[in-house]
Design a protein around this nucleic acid. Structure first.
Length: 448
RNA sequence: CGGGAAGUAGCGCAGUUUGGCUAGCGCGCUUGGUUCGGGACCAAGAGGCCGCGGGUUCAAGUCCCGCCUUCCCGACCA
């Protein structure tokens, strides 16, 4: 991409309505723009990152044996009445009447839809197991959207659903998804932790959350310093019921210890009774063992080998796709801007011919850029007629992992400079070796 | 939904206390010139229903009433 032709409206100053660093930087760095509270447009760079995240998710879902589908965002309310969740989720559901007077809603989640789909199309144990997933926009009428795309009313979720004949099958499907989640967050470069969680409105049995520790995180979790057991605030406050922990976790501390928003330092590990570290975290993924909570009311049943009718055992697995962007920015930034990992960066390399009016600089820049593209490197060239400072600042702000700096002085010695955004370390290389060196640098960064 | 703050040019702001505005400043934008390795400089320009509606007044960006929107804290939350 040539910068001069791209739509990358970076901002010099923090937007007036942004408070947290990820929100400020995502707006300043031309990733997103707000339309209204809780609804954001993804600009070309933001969408490109989103696409890279989705690519990683798709690869890992496929590797785990899940198949992609796409369900409607528009649901008939009757479907929700069958499970009673039209009441449970009444507050967050966006509802309306169509011209016929029928009540519809915009899907806040998709258990009902996918379960009714499977109910109508699976009838034998031979059809099981199956895991289906989609990447789709969800709608939730948040009381208070905040922090940019961290809590929005319209957001992109990857939601997967497993259908098994029995509990053993569910355990296997669950483990497979859990492992896939670990690989996804690792590939996104996120320092995630997993904790036992409260299933909340989803219902069902055991549940895990994938959390990114960071100061602005809205969710508190405790992680045991001794045995490493991690659990969400709700579980630590309520005490883990037996049904929730497969190891039969003992009851947690009494709520008197941990009342209010602060869990405090007195919180003790429900497993080994040692002290826990309390962390603020952003939830980026959540897995649930649903059992028959949805298959029962929606009659998702199959015939087993003996001809008996049985309910399908379900699991469900969500990832907040756009939260991955915000969480990455929140955990990887410095005074100059964002710092993207190679796997997610909107472009892997930005080529900076520092002065386009110097023929040699311009020509060398375009040549190097052309070769990078030829070699399959995802590159952008800052071919704008701007001064060096503008180019450095914009590339730093957006946070491309590598910059190739082409200046008049270096060219006299046949050299250009490759700079790593994160460390600011740079190396001068011969012009003709640039592409080869860039590939080596990128491989090193990928391996971190 | 309770408490707090804010809405003035594309973006960031001042002006509102004490009404006098023919509404400013920085950045960005346009044209010309000089610059050119960390957000250049000079000159000349374009760009405003001062959130919306009503009221008070000779006069409202400024005062009063109502509404809308946004942000923060809380409650809530997959």
């Amino acid at each position: 991409m040539k910068w001069s032709q791209a739509f990358i409206p970076t901002l010099r100053e923090d937007p007036q309505d942004a408070e947290v660093i990820s929100h400020k930087l995502m707006v300043r760095g031309a990733l997103i723009r707000k339309l209204t509270a809780g609804a954001y447009t993804y600009l070309p760079l933001g969408l490109k990152i989103l696409s890279k995240v989705q690519g990683i998710i798709r690869e890992e879902m496929t590797a785990a044996g899940a198949q992609e589908i796409l369900m409607p965002a528009l649901h008939p309310i009757e479907l929700w009445q069958k499970t009673g969740r039209d009441k449970v989720l009444e507050e967050v559901m966006i509802k309306f009447r169509d011209r016929h007077g029928r009540i519809g809603c915009l899907g806040p989640t998709h258990e009902e839809v996918v379960t009714s789909l499977v109910a109508g199309n699976v009838s034998s144990y031979r059809d099981l197991p199956k895991t289906l997933y989609q990447i789709q926009t969800k709608f939730r009428d948040e009381m208070r959207p905040r922090f940019g795309v961290i809590r929005s009313c319209e957001f992109i979720m990857k939601d997967a659903y497993s259908f098994d004949a029995d509990v053993q099958g569910l355990e296997k499907s669950y483990k497979s998804m859990f492992d896939a989640y670990c690989r996804i967050f690792k590939r996104c470069g996120l320092p995630y932790i997993t904790v036992y969680a409260d299933p909340g409105a989803m219902g069902g049995g055991e549940s895990h959350e994938f959390m990114i520790p960071c100061d602005i995180g809205e969710d508190l979790v405790g992680v045991c310093r001794s045995c490493g057991y991690g659990a969400s605030k709700d579980i630590l406050v309520k005490g883990a019921p037996d049904a929730r922990g497969s190891a039969g976790a003992p009851p947690g501390p009494r709520s008197g210890h941990v009342a209010g928003g602060e869990l405090g330092k007195t919180t003790l590990c429900p497993k080994c009774n040692k002290e826990m570290d309390i962390k603020h975290t952003i939830e980026v993924g959540h897995t649930f063992k649903l059992g028959t909570k949805y298959s029962k009311p929606l009659s998702a049943v199959y015939l087993d080998a003996a001809g008996a009718t049985k309910e399908i055992i379900m699991g469900c697995y969500g990832i907040g796709v756009n939260r991955i962007l915000a969480a990455t920015v929140e955990t990887a930034n410095d005074k100059d801007g964002m710092i993207w990992p190679v796997s997610l960066s909107p472009y892997e390399v930005s080529v900076l011919p520092l002065n386009m009016s110097v023929e040699n600089v311009r020509k060398t820049g375009l040549e190097i850029y052309g070769k990078l593209i030829e070699q399959g490197v995802d590159a952008i060239i800052d071919d704008r007629e701007d001064r060096a400072g503008v180019k450095f600042n914009d590339s730093d702000l957006i946070g491309y992992p590598l910059q190739i700096i082409i200046g008049e002085k270096g060219l006299k010695d046949g050299l250009v400079e490759i700079k790593i955004r994160k460390s600011k370390v740079s190396e001068k290389v011969k012009i003709e070796e640039t592409v080869q060196k860039v590939k080596i640098f990128l491989d090193k960064l990928r391996a971190l």
